[in-house]
Nucleic acid binder design. Structure first.
Lengths: 230, 230
DNA sequence: AAGTGGTCTAGACCACTAG
DNA sequence: TAGTGGTCTAGACCACTTT
């Protein structure tokens, strides 16, 4: 255990034990450096994840204070669907259901500002059972290669992630009563809802793609955990 | 814009433009420091969030490589229910439905290893409409004060978060057909599903509390976004 | 105006692991 | 065993913001 880890743990302990309650002003960096017998940089390193996690707040001249906890933050990871299925030891299957350009690909929410679009509907299967219905709009102005891409064997999900390695993403999670397409393709049980993941992907402010991914609720869940400090 | 930010942006640009494609070995720290005319520490600072985000991988002696993107990670924040409702400009309401000790508080999943428990069922309202049904087990061995706490005016959610400022959390998200209690208290429309958040809270490996929070699907969603580097 | 956190440097030594 | 990343130091200067 490195000094910065020990110091972080100790400070975490003081916060959790209420020895340093919400609102408490921590000693400033030089004092802490002196107390723990390290350089100031090591103190900064110990504190920095606590700032990111929202446990403490720092302001120049004002110092560092313990923040009353208001929320739990955790990291949600959404993998490529094929990897998710294969990691669970299941056989992955994929079927392109529909692909169209132009008027069929409508920008209902006005997000794409009139850009030409491609609309792809596809189905991901796990051991032959419907796992996810993917309904996607791709901005052909931002990704012109998508016009002629062949999505009959590679899903747009994987094709895009390979092409746009990094981008900013907004994800919305919902429970929904199934729509017509959901019922048609997902082989839902009677009254079974769908778990919907909706995602906007942007690069430099331009929206690249909008996707709705619907899962049969039965047997599907998303798991997320805090990155433990301990 | 500080040097470390400019360097990070430039490296991000090289990765996204495929100038540095997946598998590419980056120059080592001293070379980069030389190229950008900064100290080695500044290069480390520029790269470190890219490591956290999983864009690059670093190994001693082996160097630094660009990783093919496999998943989208984003941060999911679950606030105290009251804050969430009030931030939306709605009136918060709370009602304790049931509170019991002993046999009524059963540890169905065997998570609490026989510890004494308190079982609390409560309802959170937004503008008088049911918003969330909270069904919670609290470990009285870990938090003995919870035995006599009064949950008729303060929800266990808030009471606990004030008492245990930091802890590790595992969250599971699901869409479900409503159970008996859900239908009874959430005033669901016909065939309306519920969005369920299930959460285990731990401290130093001991499970403190297990909670199931059910929301009427209609009008409820969770939003999460990547922390943009730009 | 002064005190606090934020950035950066130049250097040292250590820990791991690929070759 | 040599090369790379990981940690730490002691110091400097800067930026912000409270008093």
């Amino acid at each position: 255990m490195h000094p910065y880890e020990e110091i972080r743990t100790e400070i975490l302990r003081r916060i959790n034990s209420q020895a340093w309650p919400a609102g408490f002003a921590l000693p400033h960096e030089e004092k802490l450096a002196e107390e723990f017998g390290v350089a100031r940089g090591t103190i900064r390193r110990a504190l920095s994840p606590l700032v990111d996690a929202g446990l403490i707040e720092r302001r120049r001249r004002a110092g560092t204070r313990v923040v009353g906890r208001k929320a739990h933050s955790s990291t949600l990871t959404i993998p490529v669907v094929r990897h998710e299925i294969e990691r669970g030891g299941h056989a992955y299957g994929y079927k392109l259901l529909r692909s169209s350009l132009g008027d069929d690909a409508r920008d209902d929410q006005g997000l794409f500002a009139g850009a030409p679009l491609r609309h792809i509907v596809s189905l991901h299967l796990s051991d032959g059972r419907p796992y996810q219905l993917e309904d996607r709009l791709v901005n052909l102005e931002a990704i012109p290669e998508a016009r002629d891409a062949d999505f009959s064997t590679v899903s747009p999900n994987e094709w895009l992630i390979a092409r746009v390695p990094y981008s900013s993403v907004r994800t919305i999670l919902r429970a929904e009563m199934p729509g017509t397409n959901d019922s048609k393709y997902l082989k839902l049980q009677r009254d079974e809802p769908v778990f919907v993941i909706e995602r906007q992907t942007r690069l430099d402010g331009n929206i690249l793609t909008l996707v709705r991914m619907a899962h049969p609720a039965h047997g599907f869940q998303m798991i997320t955990a805090t990155d433990d400090f301990q």
